[in-house]
Design a protein around this nucleic acid. Structure first.
Length: 585
RNA sequence: GCGCUUGUAGCUCAACUGGAUAGAGCACCGACCUUCUAAGUCGGGGGUCGCAGGUUCGAGUCCUGCCAAGCGCACCA
């Protein structure tokens, strides 16, 4: 209906253009809004206010001309000019029932659209280093990314979800070394564990698996392992230099076996991450390996192009990229003085690879702490001669965990962080997903564990799910009372749904496709959450105000068709969020 | 110091991207269960949209300057 009005207005404007009332080269974007106040009708547009200046007339006069040129349509009851020049549309009340037929016909497809027109979109999200289990910070990115993906699919985009696996690089070497040291400890060696190594309990578990599978194959005496190393930080040294020296020592002593230790750690943790995300309802089309970019020469190739485009230079033994010439704060190292490419070098190759795969839009979902990284990636794409405007980086702020009034402290340093798995175990998948996407992603959010668990009206998850369960419950009672639903009879008598609560509900239902479209194109899943809360409220209010299972056959069946539509839309929305729509609670 | 993000009711957050009288939920006060699930509903009070300017028919929304919070400013990822 909204779309239809937009078309009508556009037609009217085109007419005015042929009459030279409006300039022919004008290409206005018509924007129709739902009104906030019933006195303003059902829909309104400010188009006359926007165009008045260029038409060299006053808004109200232009509004009159627009209305005069409007096509006649029986769905429009009347059109008024209000305020400074708003055009208000009052729709024919009979038109409001159409939505029930639409929902019934489309079913679970109601709300889907084709505005994406099959455009290829890649959504990359989470992509946490496989150096440990996912924590609650990753959870927000996982929930947000998967819902954004669902919304884009729902609006006709061709979506490819991807997790970039950082299976190369220094952090992974630190993990591999940490695993090996725990392995040595478990084999009976004693030494002081490095301050910069991974200390989590899971590292010991992986070490134990190594022992189970390979016995003492990788054991070396601690005298040999720690001979002639620089000092660790607690002893007055540098923890980074110390751990790097240990990594070199591990590679030296283990030779080819280093890769076995490394891969055991990688595969164990990555497997855990995959299981974790799958249980959280977050799935991927592809797990993209950083190492593969090194192995197939993609990094060398990207750097060669940068070099031939004159964006690389050497300084202090390292190779630098002139990102400062393309909007970044300073130049960035791509090859360290030790000859190793930086993480940034692989990321250049990775983003280039994404574009070469033919995606029309790239969406990267990052933690907000990585925001400073955006200019250099865009700079790299420009320097490669690629289209950097295709890259869209969405930032997700951290969530603070609360237990009622008490803030849950989290410190990565001590290894005492709350994992996503712990969160899921405590509050469940549905509540976790709902809470994560309840707020705009750039908004810092407080996540109250007590609230997420509570089975009360304070908890918005239960509130929405309860609305769905309630409709199902009505139908159970309906059967118990010996009624048989007659959908056709209900459809023929929808006009009996003339109570104010019913009108409100019909309007809310009709808004659903608009909400999906907006939530998708703006990448704002919280709009869908807000909508579902409103729909649930409208339904609960209706439920309390009217009895559905009345004796009157026509009215009863009309009402049943209405609440069936409510159930359908609630289920559709919850499905997009990856949240269950329970039939009973 | 520079950059990014944020600042709206006591608290947590919305506000259709520049529109009409800024809205919800908690919390607080007061009503509603012999009824299709009270995990629900109804009513009430509560606001200098961080502050100050500017842009225009019109600003919570845009521009400038301050103030405050978070994050970032590696040859880590």
């Amino acid at each position: 209906m909204k779309k239809q009005l937009e078309t009508f207005i556009s037609q009217s404007l085109a007419t005015l253009q042929t009459q030279n009332i409006l300039a022919a080269d004008l290409n206005p974007s018509v924007h129709i809004e739902r009104t906030r106040d019933v006195a303003h009708g059902d829909f309104a547009t400010n188009i006359a206010l926007i165009l008045a200046k260029s038409a060299k007339t006053n808004p109200r006069q232009l509004a009159e001309q627009i209305i005069a040129a409007l096509p006649v349509n029986e769905a429009i009851l009347k059109v008024e000019i209000a305020g400074a020049g708003f055009i208000n549309f009052f729709m024919n009340p009979n038109a409001q029932y159409q939505v029930i037929a639409d929902i019934q016909a489309a079913g679970e497809k109601f709300g889907l659209s084709q505005i994406g027109a099959g455009k290829k979109v890649q959504v990359e999200f989470v992509s946490a280093n496989p150096t440990g289990p996912l924590h609650v910070g990753h959870g927000r990115g996982a929930a947000y990314g998967s819902v954004v993906g669902n919304l884009l699919i729902a609006t006709g985009f061709d979506v490819h979800r991807e997790y970039y696996v950082n299976d190369a690089g220094r952090q992974m070497d630190i993990l591999a070394t940490s695993v090996w040291l725990r392995y040595l400890e478990a084999s009976g060696e004693t030494f002081i564990f490095p301050s910069n190594a991974y200390r989590g309990e899971y590292v010991r578990d992986i070490a134990q698996k190594l022992i189970d599978q390979h016995s003492k194959k990788f054991a070396r005496s601690s005298e040999i392992v720690f001979a002639n190393l620089p000092l660790d930080e607690p002893e007055g040294g540098d923890k980074e230099i110390y751990i790097d020296a240990l990594i070199s020592r591990a590679k030296e002593l283990l030779n080819a076996d280093y890769r076995v230790v490394f891969d055991t750690g990688l595969n164990d943790i990555l497997g855990d991450i995959k299981d974790d995300l799958a249980e959280f309802g977050t799935t991927y089309n592809q797990w993209f390996s950083e190492r593969s970019l090194m192995d197939d020469g993609s990094i060398d190739k990207a750097l060669a192009v940068l070099k031939s485009n004159n964006y690389l230079y050497e300084k202090d033994g390292a190779i630098w990229f002139k990102s400062s010439e393309l909007g970044d704060e300073k130049d960035r190292v791509v090859i360290r003085d030790n000859g190793q490419p930086t993480y940034f070098a692989s990321d250049i190759a990775y983003h280039w690879n994404k574009l070469e795969r033919g995606f029309d839009v790239l969406i990267d979902i990052w933690g907000a702490d990585h925001h400073g990284y955006i200019p250099r990636v865009k700079a790299a794409l420009i320097a490669l001669g690629a289209d950097a405007t295709k890259l869209n980086v969405l930032l997700v702020q951290f969530a603070s965990l609360w237990r009622g009034e008490e803030k849950v402290s989290m410190s990565t340093r001590s290894g005492e962080f709350v994992t996503l798995r712990e969160l899921r175990d405590e509050v469940g998948k549905d509540a976790a997903r709902f809470f994560y996407v309840m707020r705009r992603s750039e908004q810092h959010m407080d996540f109250d564990l007590e609230l997420a668990k509570s089975k009360s009206n304070e908890n918005p998850v239960f509130y929405v799910q309860y609305a769905h369960a309630r409709v199902c419950s009505v139908f159970r009672t309906h059967g118990e009372k010996g009624f048989t639903q007659d959908i056709t009879l209900g459809m023929a008598n929808l006009a009996e749904l003339n109570a104010e609560h019913e009108t409100v509900l019909l309007t809310t239902l009709a808004r659903y496709p608009e909400v999906i479209e907006r939530a998708a194109t703006q990448y704002e899943p919280h709009l869908l959450i807000n909508y579902l809360r409103e729909l649930a409220t409208d339904f609960h209010t209706y439920y309390n105000a009217h009895q559905f299972l009345v004796e009157n056959d026509t009215l009863r069946n009309a009402r049943l068709n209405l609440i069936t539509s409510v159930r359908q839309v609630l289920a559709n929305g919850l499905t997009l969020l990856g949240i269950s729509a329970p039939e009973a609670m």
